[in-house]
């Protein structure tokens, strides 16, 4: 039988990556229901850190959805990212309470110190800055989340100090390692 290229392409591509298996298991767990796309994307992003073309193609084929559909949904929601994450991530809450308490000053100083605006990654790929609304800790505003750690009542200076410390620790660790 003649198998055209298109047909063979449409099967989910074979993969050795165990993280892909995790995604495949998730699709299966949701009974291949197409309406679970957002759940599957959450799981995929957790496993890979971001959503690249291979991964999105894999999901589309597993769930039998048009490619554009998957991309359209993933790009609609701010949580999903198509770029690899930086080594360190500093999330600054820009919700109303944090804004009122000076979150913009934190962002301004971050840009001045590290040259990174919200949504950007530093040139060396080590630090990304994200703005986010909101983790729901308004009583402790302004709020930061540095590498997953939730921090309240921060100032521009304390933020810079924390990040410098973080970057310096890496350097030390690298110097010790070899």
């Amino acid at each position: 039988m003649l198998v055209t290229k298109q047909q063979s392409d449409y099967a989910p591509p074979a993969t050795e990556d165990p993280r892909m298996d995790e995604v495949a298991r998730a699709v299966k767990r949701f009974g291949y229901q197409q309406d679970a796309l957002i759940e599957v994307l959450h799981i995929a992003q957790r496993a890979f850190g971001y959503l690249d073309e291979t991964l999105l193609t894999y999901i589309a084929r597993q769930m039998k959805l048009p490619l554009g559909w998957v991309y359209g949904v993933a790009s609609f929601y701010h949580f999903f990212s198509f770029e690899p994450p930086a080594e360190h991530n500093c999330v600054v809450c820009t919700g109303t309470a944090c804004y009122v308490e000076g979150a913009q000053k934190i962002l301004d100083l971050l840009e001045k110190e590290f040259g990174v605006k919200p949504g950007q990654v530093s040139a060396d790929g080590r630090l990304s800055v994200t703005d986010f609304r909101c983790p729901g800790s308004c009583g402790q505003a302004p709020i930061l989340v540095i590498d997953g750690e939730l921090l309240g009542r921060e100032t521009p200076e304390s933020t810079i100090a924390r990040i410098k410390q973080l970057l310096a620790n890496d350097k030390q660790a690298k110097e010790v390692a070899p």
Binding site: E53, L56, T57, P66, L67, G68, W69, V70, Y71, G72, S75, F76
Partner: peptide, 19 residues
């Protein structure tokens, strides 16, 4: 279903497949 929209709001754009 080649065409889709990516992004949202003022940043929306029409795309084909995976952009």
């Amino acid at each position: 279903h080649t065409w889709e929209l990516k992004g949202r709001g003022i940043h929306s754009m029409v795309i084909t497949d995976l952009n």
